[in-house]
Nucleic acid binder design. Structure first.
Lengths: 249, 249
DNA sequence: CGGAGTTTTGACTGGAATCAACTGCGGTGG
DNA sequence: CCACCGCAGTTGATTCCAGTCAAAACTCCG
């Protein structure tokens, strides 16, 4: 599977003897870069900054967001280990990025990154594929924000989180919600009160139950899917999600 | 300017003697393809279809949309002449596209398109640039849908339309609203009634006035900008918008 | 234990949705 | 030519979902 193999390559690099992987992956580019650590709440980059670097998340969760003039915040996405940050860029970053939890990233100069990309016919389709995934996620989010109710939004978010953690839906999966209610609200276009109320309702209906500090056990997966609203969508959980890259060399 | 020069290349191709442009552009790829016409309301492609072609819009306006299981529709964007359609794709289209007005497109096989892209170091950065523009637009839209009021949404839409028509803001520009209230509503995450009421209010305040069948004259441009809500944003009207492509060969 | 930040809960409000009636316009055919 | 129809758009009355305001409860630390 695409993501797995990339992760494995990283792991090899991080631990022992460093040998270039047989097929270069986007992540393998970052393998030799030093790890940078950020505590929760610290900024990795700011909207409007000179877009000088590309980042790979190696640990933790990040939030990507923009702020309206009067302080309204919109979180456009969360980043997890294995995600790459700053790929879709102009000459300045389009958004700010902060650590939600303690987090680690590797950094790669943009010019060098672009050289590598233009040199390598293996890397290019991977990069295209990433951008397309990002676009697909953005469109899902537009659908959510434009037409879904509060409950549908929260359920969609829980399912998205479950998907990112690659849980299998059979065994009452436990997901970790690393972010605060405020982060969730700013991601879902709601208020913290509405998020809280909706979560409470889902718990009282036995769809989910708390599980430890930030954990949530999904008791009724099918119910959650139904409540998420996009009934026509294919099943995106599991291996079907990581499709072959369609872009040629 | 980036877009202008591309358009000019197309125009040359369409009219007389066909000579390859000095620097190939994405649009010049489409120059020799036959023109296909669609009447208003007809579908160009459907979500889930085999993503076999890339399109260039040469005339008219298209809507890009997705449908929730129960019929709710979300328009994720509109396409104007010069826009390219189907670039950000997996093996299946992520959305449906219909003609809003009578429209014309040129079609290019995806495999051939990908060959051309991977062969040409001039074309690749242009394609990346397109994808990045698309991402930027998607993020603006997420901000709009997540946090803006009905009035801010409508004003943002009018400004976006003005920008796409490259009007200059000094001379009380007239914009053409080709789409119906329903299209606007499904794009802005509102209902037709709310769109209608908001437009009426803007007219009664003298911000805009009707101008012919589908035309709107913007009388108070600065007011419209203020009402659009994103006060921190830079001025995107005019030449500053078409930046240099940042991607190298 | 205390205090700050986060989350929950409750009462109330408000902006947009809904439901419904009406207007205006363009096309069509008697 | 104009009466009629259908559709897009407007306007009004009412509803309702999520926002706002406020206070209490919980959690994590030092």
């Amino acid at each position: 599977m695409f993501f797995e193999s990339a992760q494995t390559a990283i792991a090899r690099h991080a631990s022992g003897t460093i040998t270039p992987p047989a097929v270069p992956t986007l992540q393998s580019l970052f393998g030799r870069q030093p790890i940078e650590k950020f505590e929760a709440g610290k900024a990795i980059l700011w909207e409007g900054d000179d877009a000088s670097h590309i980042f790979e998340v190696t640990e933790g969760v990040l939030r990507v967001f923009r702020i309206l003039g009067d302080g309204r915040r919109v979180i456009t996405g969360f980043l997890y280990p294995g995600d790459i940050l700053g790929v879709s860029l102009k000459d300045r970053y389009l958004y700010s990025v902060e650590a939600v939890t303690h987090a680690q990233v590797r950094r790669f100069g943009r010019n060098r990154f672009q050289e590598e990309i233009s040199r390598s016919p293996e890397l290019r389709p991977q990069l295209f594929s990433r951008l397309c995934d990002e676009m697909a996620a953005a469109q899902d989010q537009m659908v959510l924000l434009a037409r879904k109710s509060a409950e549908e939004r929260v359920c969609s978010f829980l399912l998205l989180t479950a998907r990112r953690m690659k849980v299998d839906r059979q065994t009452a999966p436990v997901i970790e919600i690393a972010m605060t209610r405020l982060d969730m609200a700013d991601y879902l276009g709601l208020t913290i009160e509405t998020v809280s109320r909706t979560m409470t309702k889902l718990m009282s209906r036995g769809v989910i139950v708390p599980s430890g500090r930030h954990g949530l056990k999904i008791l009724k997966f099918a119910k959650l899917v139904a409540l998420a609203g996009d009934s026509d969508e294919e099943d995106k959980t599991g291996s079907g999600y990581a499709r072959q890259a369609i872009w040629p060399n």
